[in-house]
Amino acid sequence: MIELKNIEKLAELSRIRVSDEEKEVFLKDIGSILGFVDQIKDVAGKADMTMTQSENGLKNIFREDAHPHISGQFTEDLLGCVPEKENGYVKVKKIL
């Protein structure tokens, strides 16, 4: 079952800050949701990807690797959404 340390780890990985108080609430909520979801364990059988994919008739679709748009056509519109930018680049803080 999910524990407080799982919540802390998942929050860290998801880049979400949770207060101590909220951790407890999330632990309780997610615990009860998982308690409900656990009924799927009653169903016999295991996922076999090869079988299910062929059964499904699903296939991967790729866009044709051709007809690129004109370079820079969308640059201005997209940069218009960027909170911090410099000389046509997205500005981010130093990583190292």
Binding site: I2, N6, I7, L10, A11, L13, S14, R15, I16, R17, V18, E22, F26, D29, I30, I33, L34
Partner: peptide, 18 residues
């Protein structure tokens, strides 16, 4: 993400990551 995402969204992100 703390300022921008509401409680249900954060709850589902954590559940999904789990």
């Amino acid at each position: 993400r703390e300022a921008g995402l509401g409680k249900e969204v954060r709850r589902r992100i954590l559940l999904g990551a789990f």
